[in-house]
Design a protein around this nucleic acid. Structure first.
Lengths: 148, 148
DNA sequence: TTGCGGATTAGACTCATTCTAACTGAGTTA
DNA sequence: TAACTCAGTTAGAATGAGTCTAATCCGCAA
């Protein structure tokens, strides 16, 4: 079920939007609420359908726009696996993704700083990287590990 | 320029195809030759255009088919970055990919076993992974590091 | 109250990839 | 030699995620 944003999350959204010169709109709040409600890495379509329950007039284009805006101001991350639909993730801590081969579910995997460091160290001189994407493909027996 | 396959590479192709119950065809040889000639992670379209120089009647669908076959019998790997066109890579050693933000070029980055191990160690119990994809995004000042 | 500009909207468009149905050709089988 | 078979190939149609466009909306300032 889609709850309203907590005060804290609402401030987080407002601050990020305003800081990058964008407006707080009902649509953006609705989309952000959906992202925080169920942290299961939804596709645009899934976000669209969930948000429509709360705001029936919302258009798909707007969902694309909102998500792009959020990515632009660092509120959420995109998650891609091969060429499947892009998924969205509001977890900002450095983490990898584990994709369950059978269920298709995506799980966040915490990424300790020393692993990040050892990864960065394999780059030959002259290579300078800002973003490192790590994704595992396999099978997870574990129960849900969503951080919400 | 597209040279013919060396005896060694030809045998490698034949062995892999036959082992998985597939036939050696002129189209498959042509596509494989293109992949080995310039190890720059070409897209399907690039493979198509290069292969056409040598085999003008070749169709795009066949290039898709050949590449899928090669992936299936472990001859090449797919490389995806976000939702851009899939690229193909005949480097079978475990390696990561570095994508140059400005040129779009993809470089192979050798992946030492101890880094692989430390990566595998961050998976919580119950998570079992066969494939790990690692990709860097950034800027490379270095000259070409293609292994061919 | 009018004008401005960012946000939203519906629908058209793009383009990588997949699908489909017809065709080819090498290697049987009759 | 002719018919059969079956994987592989082919052209073109279909799919579908994502992008673009042009019209509209709406809060705010002049």
């Amino acid at each position: 079920m889609i709850r309203n944003l907590t005060e804290h999350d609402k401030e987080h959204l407002q601050e990020a939007l305003i800081k990058s010169g964008q407006k707080v709109t009902p649509q953006r709040e609705a989309v952000f609420t959906v992202l925080l409600a169920e942290r299961d890495h939804p596709t645009v379509d899934e976000v669209f359908n969930r948000a429509r329950e709360v705001m029936p007039g919302l258009s798909l284009a707007t969902v694309y726009n909102c998500l792009e805006t959020f990515v632009g101001c660092g509120l959420v991350r995109q998650v891609n696996h091969e060429r499947e639909s892009t998924r969205y993730c509001p977890n900002l801590a450095p983490h990898a993704h584990f994709r369950d081969k059978e269920t298709g579910q995506v799980h966040d995997i915490e990424l300790p700083p020393e692993v990040m460091k050892s990864l960065r160290s394999i780059l030959p001189p002259g290579f300078d990287s800002e973003v490192i994407e790590i994704s595992f493909l396999g099978r997870a027996q574990a129960k849900d590990t969503h951080s919400n």
